[in-house]
Design a binder for these strands. Structure first.
Lengths: 248, 248
DNA sequence: CGTTGCGTTGAATAAGGTCAAATAGAGTGG
DNA sequence: CCACTCTATTTGACCTTATTCAACGCAACG
């Protein structure tokens, strides 16, 4: 593709690659950085990687090389139990940062699998630490992203620990809806990238339960669902499901 | 208490306060720092705070001022749902770092409550960021601690999402046992600082279930439990409970 | 055009939740 | 020191929810 005659063939590609030109920069690692810092981050994030649907971005146990910012596509991360049980710990989309679980031991503690063809930006971790020593705004934003992951996890605990099946699924759909909206997509209509089984794993339910509850939501006019396509038709009712629980 | 006649009454107190002299330094924020860095951290961690049993260290919604390292005592953190439901997100003991959930929005996202009289070291967050720009080892260790919290959360998700009541409780007891051991206490005999209800909230179960499962464990000779006192009498069996699940 | 994976639905079952009652401590004030 | 109160805990009986097991439908794909 690159013309050897062109003295700077790489730059042409990088113009599109670079964080400062990325449409996700307000969601992603460079969010809130001034232009000087942004220029530095452009150099930090120097490689892209394509992960085909079903392929792994990293495996549990693998050494930490880099963090990954999702540019396009959709991934899941899953924790494994010795006996083979697998728990989906999260679904990740554009702008999300993955791999922070690996900083603790320098080895990834979960698998990252692409649910559709996905493109990620590689962020060499050692370099990120170095650069964030020089750029307080980058440092702070990185801390905020790790903290946000912790807060997200607390939310999942709340969901798994104290919600019923219907509430969990409502919360799940609303969360997806909100995240799509934040990325400029429709908040009311979207395609699920994951199977019922993966939703079930994430929500601590069996796939049959997911299927049943989706059907019930549809009967009740909250959503309309066909295969992977979901349309939220009664947002308020869906919200009411999780806000005011029937119990207590 | 302090004598005004003494020119340096504070230093006498600080000698005991200081991280470099703290028996928890291998578990806590200064873990793995060289002595120069440790001296800096001594200045960073400049205040202690006592939290009486039942009192809050911080409230959800409160502004982030500092992170807190537990020096002695026992705390819980809990996430609140709008409708009043409360989910215990974790139990924390000496050497644990609390408050990292607040970095994301500069406001705490959960409550921190002392389950017994607790002493914490206050770590002003802005100063921690500043210092970690100067001390790569501190920076890296802080990142590891945030990451460890993420990994811990993944473990809780696995527990809540795919384990049965008996497995959850076995995992919980083993986790406590291991953490006590790491702090130089008995791994086989300890006092629970939390109520059955709090255990239940953490594990996504009702207090009656906790009580029943504890009784069953006792009948089966895995543990002996009386009120808050627990003695693990068959560690292997307890481990086997979570390792090889009956299902699948 | 069969195969395969994913999803739906029904019936039976089991796990945990709910409700209720009894008990036991721990702490309090006389 | 004792009676009293309050809260935490245990245990039983019953009920609800989600799981399990099973059958079937559907769509994509070679």
């Amino acid at each position: 593709m690159a013309s050897p005659a062109n003295p700077k063939p790489v730059d042409v590609t990088r113009l599109k690659t670079v964080c400062s030109a990325c449409s996700l920069r307000e969601l992603c690692l460079p969010a809130g950085l001034d232009s000087a810092a942004l220029a530095e981050v452009d150099r930090l994030v120097n490689r892209r990687r394509h992960v085909k649907r079903g392929d792994y971005l990293y495996h549990a146990g693998g050494a930490l090389q880099a963090l990954y910012a999702i540019r396009s596509g959709f991934m899941k991360s899953c924790v494994l139990h010795e006996d083979g049980r697998e728990q989906v710990a999260g679904f990740h989309m554009m702008g999300d940062l993955m791999g922070m679980d690996a900083i603790s031991t320098a080895r990834h503690m979960c698998d990252a699998v692409a649910l559709e063809d996905t493109e990620v930006c590689e962020i060499p971790f050692a370099y990120l630490e170095q650069l964030s020593r020089e750029l307080p705004s980058l440092q702070h934003h990185f801390h905020r992203m790790m903290s946000r992951e912790i807060v997200r996890d607390y939310g999942v605990m709340l969901l798994l620990g104290s919600m019923k099946a219907e509430e969990r699924l409502a919360a799940f759909l609303l969360n997806l809806s909100q995240r799509f909206a934040a990325r400029g997509y429709s908040s009311s209509e979207f395609n699920l990238r994951m199977t019922r089984e993966e939703i079930g794993s994430y929500l601590g339910l069996k796939l049959e339960t997911i299927s049943r509850v989706l059907s019930r939501f549809q009967e009740d006019g909250l959503i309309s669902v066909r295969h992977k396509h979901v349309k939220i038709t009664d947002l308020a009712a869906l919200r009411a499901l999780i806000g005011r629980a029937p119990c207590q």
